[in-house]
Structure formats: C-alpha cells, structure tokens
Design a protein around this nucleic acid. Structure first.
Length: 188
DNA sequence: ACAAGGATACCT
DNA sequence: GGTATCCTTGTC
C-alpha cells in the first residue's frame, strides 16, 4: 500500500506541475471489497478559463461546475457519446483546472481506462478517497525528468494553435513501456 | 478514412 | 426546439 495523496496536495494552482507530478503515482480502484492499483502513465493538464482547450473556457455551466470545486474531486464526463473521461480536479476552490488521466497500468487511452475500471459519471464530483472507490496513492515509484516525455495534448486542435501546441501532455517513457502512446500515432 | 453515439452549449 | 460540436475508439 502506498501513501494516499491528499486533497491539499492537489490544490496547487500549478496545474501543469501537478500533472507532471502525477505521472508514476497510482490510481487505486476499490470495488466489492477489493482494490486494484494502476500506475499512471499518461496525463494532460487543463488549466483554468484562459486555456481554450479546457471545458471551463466557456465559464461555469452545469457540466463545468465540478471543475470549480477545490482540488481533490473527480471530474468525469462523456465525450463522443460513448467514452467517459476521468480527470482529477486540481487547484483552489473556484480555480477551474483538472488533470485528465489518459492511461494507467497496462491500459492506454482515456476511454479504455474508464471502461476497464468501470468508471462512469456517478463518480463525477466524488472525492478522491477510498470511500468513494477511487483514489490516488504515491507508491514510491521514482520518476525522473528523463522518464517523462512532454507533448502537445491530444484532440484539442479546436482550441487554436496557441493552446493546442502547449506541451501539457506527459507520458511515462520508462523501460519496457515503449512510447507509452495512446494507441494512435504520436502527434506532430 | 470514417461512423458510432449522446450530452452539451449555443443559437433561433 | 434545432443543431454543430466534442479532451475517442474500433472497424472499415
């Protein structure tokens, strides 16, 4: 068992720094009394209303309400009518930012991850804690700067080149992990 | 290369 | 109430 990551740790306004920090931490799913641990391999930062790729760029809406919570709750939404995306809300209260978890354990791809862990919108707004069935742990894995590759975020061309090109996607690139891609050719 | 799929946001 | 769009994936 690792050390449970606290909400206080997720309330930094440095969304990009938090995203990078979360690579190599673990996503722990607790169901039916048992837990599974999945090392996070791929994340993306979405940083507040100024970031045109962030849902909060359109301001507060019923959907984005969760993003304005203080860091430490899950933001889960449905995209393309069929895939749930899992994000951990970060930053202080009323600072709408989150880190999208795109891959963990042997699972690559955000839609595949939520399907594999049976994560749906019932977790939207829930606290990242063992009681909610999904939380984060520091399992002591050492991840150096050389183990992380930064690239542009996936699927956000609509935000325009300024935001689409920000190198806010972080992929664990350790031994035996290949490029740690999303199952698609890498962008650029 | 592209359809599937449903919620969302924004328009009339 | 209509519709363009979407932080994707699997199959074509």
């Amino acid at each position: 068992m690792g050390r449970i990551i606290t909400e206080a740790e997720l309330r930094s306004p440095d969304t990009v720094g938090l995203a990078r920090w979360l690579v190599g931490k673990a996503l722990v799913r607790t169901r039916r009394g048992g837990s599974t641990v999945h090392v996070i391999t791929e994340v993306e930062a979405y940083d507040s209303e100024r970031d045109l790729a962030c849902h909060a760029s359109r301001g507060r809406t019923p959907r984005t309400q969760t993003l304005y919570a203080a860091g430490g709750v899950w933001y889960v939404y449905l995209v393309y009518g069929m895939h749930h995306m899992l994000n951990i809300v970060t930053g202080p209260q009323d600072y709408p930012a989150a880190v999208l978890i795109r891959g963990a354990g042997s699972v690559t791809g955000p839609g595949r991850l939520t399907r594999a862990l049976s994560i749906g919108r019932s977790l939207n707004g829930a606290h990242a804690s063992p009681a909610s069935g999904l939380h984060l742990e520091d399992v002591g894995l050492k991840v150096g700067a050389a183990d992380i590759v930064a690239t542009a975020r996936i699927g956000v061309d609509y935000a325009g080149p300024l935001w689409a090109r920000k190198p806010w996607r972080f992929v664990l690139s350790g031994p035996g992990r290949g490029e740690g891609g999303s199952g698609r050719p890498a962008p650029q």
